[in-house]
Amino acid sequence: MSIYFELTMALHYLRAKNIRFCSVMTLFSVMGIALGVATLIVVMSVMNGFQEELLNFILGTNGHIKVFLDKNINPNYKEVAESIEKIPGIAKAIPVTSDQIIIEASGSVTAAIVKGVEKPMIQDNIIAGNLQNFDNGIIIGTHLAELLNVYCGDKITFISPEVVLGEIPKMQQYEIIGIFDAGKFEDYNILIYMPLKMAQDFLDYTDSIRNIEVFVDNIDKSDRLAEIIEQTTQMKSESWQSHHRDYFNTITTEKNVMLLILTLIIVVAAFNIISNLMIIVQTKKSAIAIMRTFGATSWSIIRIFCICGLMIGFVGTCFGCIIGVTFALNIENIKTLCENIQFSTSITHFFSNLPVILVTYDVIYVAILALSLSFLATIIPALQAVRQDPAEILRYE
């Protein structure tokens, strides 16, 4: 039997008008597959978004790898930074100092973290002033500016927390030449950037630093690059992956568990396919027997019912992908609709901050998963069809 014949028979069985119940079952099977695929795509996209948000929150403007300078190995931090930048995959190596200090301005006193760098990587976050005069002043976050009621051009007094008994703490005034927006990164609300030379002088680093922050081209390779840096510089290196591994392992585990749970929706739809095809086998057993007597092989009958299941799975998967991708790409419009319906404040607040990142690989993975389960669902009905004895069936027809 030709594949065209098998395809025609499969289509005929799925849309048979005299078996209304089977047609309804087919529709439910398609809807089940579509619902499962769409749900998986949306949930995986949301989980990707949360993972990206967590990564941005943790990294912020920090480097992807920290190299802790060991002056006993090489006291020349500039030479070390240059050697790191020569490693393939390294974008930038920035020497930094980082210490807690006390600051005072306009009669207000608070604690802050001062970070000494040659040039801060916050060009896109500057909302007042600029980085052109960075060598002559400091840059603070919006939170500190509001807390101290200061603006560009004002001066802040730095007070060293290290005080020798009987001595006055070290104090120095610095001019604000820029304000940056820390955004959602609350840890950076108390951060101050200042020129590396100024930081070294105020914090008594002489001609040294605390560590080197390394930025890489592909953050997923940070662990491997950290190992290469350790081998090259003989200094301890720590990537963001090793430092925050527990957070991301938790997100990955949660994503896998959600994938497993929501796959059950497709499994239920696959059981509908099995039920639908088994009903078709029982209803069409006479037609199957006649095809067998006219020369249809067992493999031909099996292929007919496999095509039936794959058609259901293919149509359901296509609709599910369209629905899931459309939903994921239009979260903002759906959020607006939810606001117009006037959901509770807590729901709309959560929905407005719902991050979504649609990954093509995830869509392909879900589609292959749905098609595979649809194919597996055809095996039992197909075997049931070929096991029937044509002579026994036709004897009573």
Rank of each mutant, 00 (worst) to 15 (best):
I122R: 06
E118I: 12
E175P: 10
G141S: 15
D124C: 08
H143I: 15
G178V: 05
P120A: 03
I156D: 01
D187L: 12
G137M: 00
C152H: 04
P88T: 11
L144W: 07
V96K: 10
K86Q: 10
K184F: 14
D154G: 03
D154I: 00
D181S: 09
I102D: 00
S83V: 04
H143D: 14
S160H: 12
M121A: 14
K86A: 09
G178M: 03
I113C: 03
Q132W: 06
V109H: 04
V117E: 08
G129I: 01
A91V: 06
Q100I: 09
A111K: 13
D99F: 05
K119W: 15
N149Q: 08
N189E: 15
F158N: 03
I122F: 07
L148T: 00
G178S: 13
L165K: 13
T110N: 08
I102E: 00
N136F: 12
I156R: 02
Y151R: 08
I87N: 07
I122M: 07
F185D: 13
G129C: 02
S83D: 11
S83N: 15
S106I: 04
P88L: 13
K170S: 08
N136A: 09
I140K: 06
Y151K: 10
N149H: 07
N133Q: 07
A91C: 02
D135G: 10
M121R: 15
T97L: 09
Y188L: 13
E186I: 12
L165P: 11
I103W: 08
E85F: 06
L147V: 06
I192G: 00
E175N: 10
Y193R: 09
G137H: 00
M121Y: 15
E79T: 11
V117D: 07
T142D: 04
V96W: 06
Q123V: 12
I192T: 06
G153S: 01
N149M: 04
T97R: 04
F158I: 03
C152M: 09
V96S: 07
D124P: 10
P161D: 04
L131T: 07
Q172K: 15
V163A: 06
Q172S: 14
I159W: 02
Q172F: 12
P88W: 08
S98A: 09
P95A: 02
L165S: 14
T110V: 09
K115G: 02
G137L: 01
D187F: 13
D124S: 15
T157D: 00
I102M: 04
E146T: 05
K119G: 08
S160E: 05
Q123L: 13
I102F: 01
N136H: 11
V80L: 07
E79H: 11
Y174M: 11
I94T: 11
G89Q: 11
Q100T: 05
I126G: 05
D187E: 12
M121W: 14
